[in-house]
Design a protein around this nucleic acid. Structure first.
Length: 363
DNA sequence: AATGCGGGGGT
DNA sequence: ACCCCAGCATT
């Protein structure tokens, strides 16, 4: 492979066609770190507004380190993979304590921070400091596998070694690794698409054996299709006499750890209406230590969480104060009025449900 | 090597 | 109704 030509063509194309993204206008390692974490498994268009809001509230690592995790969650709510927010916050505290509030510049130090793996750590340092470090993520993995005409499953150890080795070899000896890495990612994301790649626009077309053999649909090798599980879940809008709603914080061992949700549980196995009602009553008693009068179903929405497709059925209910005296809830709960709800970090489906309720209230 | 972890954009 | 995405940590 003619790496010198590859570098030159990639960078020339990038200078003419690269997108102007917010995190490309800074060399602040903290800002770039934030963008990289937000961009993990999340598309650029989704990230941009979150990135601006977050940096406005927490302009420096120290601002983030001294914040409450709840506020970090609030700014993250809707982005998904909330572990990222937790680890970002924990890492910011480490940076504040161990590195004097400056995001480290040594790869060894960077990779000790939680939530920072091989890609993210190298990306921050190569983009911010032009460090001569390789990167492989979704876009470059696709591009490199095609440039190498690598037909095996990219997830195996052998494949990963091949791809990371290429990512190292492609770097220039002198300066310019950061820009080259950006350029190759951009080509991967804008031209070297999974399906119907824009080969005729690609500056690397003459270097690409996959194009020469017409094997774009074979490389990278298709991943095995995911299997989804359908679930039916029930959410409860429980009101007390003053009109406040019951919400609960998701525990560390479940989805949306640390975020708030309406009382919710799996009712996939409830085949009849009476089974459902009994299950709901038992659930509320066991988990929230109170009794309710179950009202009618008011809404239903569908959403997806990792490998689950969820139909969420929502019932209204009133707190039954005559059924007092049950044991205290085992999880953190809160009765909140409508004005307080916006200050809670709700997961996306809970937020959708709450928005729907608000809209109903208006009309 | 496989799995859990969210949510939304694009087609 | 799919497929995919600037991954990481755990098992």
């Amino acid at each position: 492979m003619e790496l010198r030509a590859l570098r030159k063509k990639a960078v020339a194309w990038f200078q003419g066609h690269g997108r102007d993204l917010p995190w490309r206008n800074t060399s602040d390692r903290y800002a770039i770190w934030l963008s990289e974490v937000m961009l993990q498994q999340t598309q650029v268009a989704t990230v941009i507004p979150y990135y601006h809001r977050f940096l406005e509230r927490f302009p420096t690592v120290s601002d983030l380190a001294s914040a409450d995790l709840d506020e970090v969650y609030q700014l993250w709510a809707g982005l998904g993979y909330y572990r990222r927010a937790r680890q970002l916050h924990a890492a910011a505290k480490m940076v504040a304590e161990q590195h004097n509030g400056t995001f480290p510049s040594e790869p060894k130090d960077v990779h000790e921070l939680p939530g920072i793996g091989r890609y993210t750590g190298n990306a921050v340092l190569t983009f911010a400091d032009d460090a001569r470090l390789p990167i492989v993520e979704a876009n470059t993995q696709r591009l490199y596998s095609r440039l190498l005409r690598w037909k095996n499953d990219c997830s195996t150890q052998e494949s990963q070694k091949v791809l990371w080795d290429f990512a190292s070899q492609v770097l220039p000896k002198g300066a310019g690794s950061g820009q080259l890495n950006q350029a190759l990612m951009e080509i991967g994301s804008q031209l070297c698409l999974p399906k119907n790649p824009h080969c005729l626009l690609c500056p690397l077309i003459k270097l690409c054996p996959t194009y020469a053999h017409g094997e774009q649909s074979l490389i990278p090798s298709p991943k095995k299709p995911k299997t989804y599980t359908d679930l039916v879940e029930t959410a409860l809008i429980i009101r007390d006499p003053s009109g406040q709603l019951l919400v609960r914080r998701c525990s560390a061992s479940e989805r949306w750890a640390g975020l708030w949700d309406f009382p919710r549980f799996d009712t996939t196995k409830c085949k009849t209406q009476s089974t459902l009602q009994k299950t709901i009553a038992e659930f509320v008693r066991a988990r929230f230590g109170c009794g309710i009068h179950l009202g009618k179903q008011v809404h239903q929405l569908k959403h997806a969480v990792t490998r689950y497709r969820i139909t969420l059925t929502c019932f209204e209910a009133e707190l039954d104060e005559s059924q007092a005296g049950f044991s205290a809830p085992e999880i953190e709960t809160l009765w909140v009025g409508p004005s307080q709800m916006s200050g809670l970090a709700l997961n996306s489906s809970a937020k959708r449900l709450w928005n729907w309720l608000q809209k109903q209230r208006e009309t």
